[in-house]
Nucleic acid binder design. Structure first.
Lengths: 236, 236
DNA sequence: TCAAAAGTGTTGGGATTACACCCATGG
DNA sequence: CCATGGGTGTAATCCCAACACTTTTGA
């Protein structure tokens, strides 16, 4: 299949195909949405900040490639991963003609493997502290955020960013981070609880207040249903 | 740039990159939304129905390639054209490893060059009469329709499918075609007129009724504003 | 006792759905 | 004059944004 001499398509010229992954994580301590970046290893632009990425191998699809590098950098498997856009300007990469299929994923920062990230000289950056990135990666991050916002309105994606047990104040702050604005907390609770997605537990998280905030978890059945059926909530 | 011997990326293996275009047109006579298909010229699958597509050339981006084949088949330039998704399964094309970046475009059926279409053995198919298509093209059409529906709710895309002067009954039927369902016509008028997008002319189209339906055209200023700002209308 | 965060309800206004009849015209 | 499609209005409902105070508890 990948031996060019056997190709049916004589006249076509192959192109290098990469994937880049905008990995979002929610830092529960700092209550900030962050993006994983690393220092690029290869020329051109070696040493500069970049999204994590890889060339697509002959025996893998783009989503498998994106998943592979996600695992490589975080140790995580089977997390939220969705295609964003394919970037294909002729001159985007001065090293060669390379198109890049961008993905974005949502992970729980608490569960990623810190060691892997350090080995790769990677780091988490807040949205408004993202440094200059190679090629069109800054555009990819911007596009990913828009898509995340759009998605968070229609489907329970936000929960991919939180640990299994979380509190409503945490969830609330996460959504404020996603939308990069202040949200009315009373209306937020109403709307989120109205989805029937949350199950209140009788334990509390007392790390952030004396009163303590109740833990919640998802109703898995409802979660899967809403993941496909969707809803439509605008947060103000 | 495209000479492999000069590539910085020694280890990467290039892949064939194609674009496929889901071209939608609204047939004003039959009041049907249609998709342009043609009989594939090359093996494998020569002679079978396919979306129009092409390999991406070394000197063009994917969107340029998609635009090029659109012009080739319809004679049209600078019409609505938007990226849909990149399909990259390893075995999707038995001829070779080929990934395809799918686009979709919206054109006015009345203005396309009929001759070009005939020369290419292409034809317009209603949505529910689409034959078996090669590879994953049927999936592309399905995905394109979903994206079109989503887009029509948020932006004035529907107007790309109509001639400069059109009537409200035409627009109404177009939206019913896009959503593949019946819509309340009184509420439809209210919602569409509320956008401030339409300018009523004092001429009438009498081809479909004795009373005649008033022509409308867009307010270009408002159109451009809403194209970027967007709105959010659900049609019931 | 008080500071700090968690939690809770109501109401007025605007938007939306559902719904049925009159109008204009050419044949 | 009538058949055909074009055009219009309203009432009841629902939804939602806006808004401020009480609770809990550890220090």
């Amino acid at each position: 299949m990948t031996d060019e001499s056997t190709s049916t398509y004589i006249v076509a010229q192959p192109i290098l195909v990469a994937v880049d992954n905008v990995i979002f994580g929610f830092d529960g301590e700092e209550e900030k949405l962050k993006v994983l970046l690393f220092k690029r290893k290869v020329e051109p632009f070696a040493g500069q900040w970049s999204l994590v990425g890889s060339f697509v191998q002959p025996n893998e699809s783009a989503v498998v490639a994106a998943s592979r590098i996600l695992t490589e950098f975080t140790g995580l498997e089977s997390v939220f991963l969705e295609q964003l856009h394919c970037y294909s300007s002729v001159d985007r990469d001065p090293g060669d003609r390379v198109i890049s299929i961008a993905y974005y994923s949502l992970i729980q920062l608490e569960t990623y493997r810190k060691k892997l990230v350090e080995e790769h000289e990677a780091a988490w950056f807040e949205l408004h502290e993202i440094p200059d990135l190679v090629i069109d990666h800054k555009q990819m991050v911007a596009d990913a955020l828009v898509k995340l916002q759009d998605n968070a309105r229609r489907r329970p994606v936000g929960f991919n960013l939180l640990p299994p047990k979380f509190t409503l104040p945490q969830l609330f702050k996460l959504y404020q981070e996603i939308y990069q604005k202040e949200i009315d907390d009373r209306n937020f609770r109403k709307k989120i609880l109205a989805t029937d997605l949350l199950e209140k537990l009788d334990t509390k998280d007392k790390t952030t207040s004396k009163k303590g905030a109740f833990h919640y978890q998802f109703n898995k059945t409802k979660y899967q249903q809403l993941e496909t059926d969707g809803y439509d909530i605008l947060f103000h």
